[in-house]
Amino acid sequence: MKYVTAVWDDGGFYVDPRPYLAELPKFRDRLPVGAREFASDPAHYALGYGNSRCVKDLELSGIHVATDKSGKMTLEFAPNQWKHDAGLRISYSGVTHFSIDYAHAIDWMLVDTVLLDEILPDEGGGCVHEIALTDASITVRCEDLRATWGDAS
């Protein structure tokens, strides 16, 4: 990620969205509508446990990639039982790139959970969404995305 820090640091995770939040006003208007709404939501990066709409600690529960070349894809995240009252579904349109890169193996964790994410404008329009997980990172390059809180099963 370019601005957000989400790293394994000396036996624990260190996350910091502040550099991204400082830069976001400079490129927010270049993001597609759905990506702009999701990235600009004040709750998105509110790391405290009192905020059920912060992405941190959501659990990756599903990846659905269209096989009909429509460019549609969906990522589903289940709520963390201690923090969220609902899961999150992110629907992508016009997907041109999708990858999962595994950084290391944390064998004591049953599921990959979100550390933080970052959405940046793409060169030819659209956006790039990168999600740092506890054990991997996901990158999606697309025309736009739509994030919906609710049942993500």
Rank of each mutant, 00 (worst) to 15 (best):
M1T: 14
K2L: 14
Y3A: 04
V4M: 07
T5V: 15
T5N: 06
T5L: 08
D9I: 06
G11S: 08
D16H: 09
P17Y: 00
P17H: 07
P19N: 11
P19L: 11
Y20T: 00
L21V: 03
E23P: 02
L24S: 01
P25K: 09
P25G: 07
P25V: 00
R28N: 09
R30I: 04
L31T: 04
P32C: 10
P32R: 10
A35T: 01
R36V: 03
E37H: 06
F38Q: 00
F38P: 01
S40V: 12
P42D: 01
A43I: 02
H44C: 02
N51S: 07
K56H: 11
K56L: 09
K56M: 13
K56R: 09
D57C: 04
D57H: 10
L58I: 08
L60R: 02
S61I: 12
S61P: 08
V65R: 12
V65C: 00
D68H: 06
D68Y: 03
S70F: 10
S70K: 03
M73Q: 11
M73C: 12
A78R: 14
N80I: 09
N80S: 13
W82T: 15
W82C: 11
W82R: 11
W82V: 13
A86I: 10
R89W: 01
I90E: 02
I90F: 00
S91L: 02
G94D: 12
H97G: 12
I100K: 10
I100Q: 14
D101T: 14
A103C: 06
A105G: 03
I106P: 01
I106E: 13
M109P: 03
L110Y: 10
V111L: 08
V111C: 05
T113R: 11
T113H: 06
T113A: 09
V114R: 04
V114T: 12
L115C: 12
L115K: 01
E118R: 02
I119F: 00
L120C: 08
P121R: 10
D122W: 01
D122F: 03
D122T: 05
G124F: 05
G126Y: 13
V128K: 12
H129Q: 07
I131K: 02
I131E: 05
A132G: 05
L133S: 07
L133P: 09
T134M: 05
T134K: 06
T134S: 15
S137M: 07
I138W: 00
V140D: 00
R141V: 15
D144A: 07
W149N: 06
A152F: 05
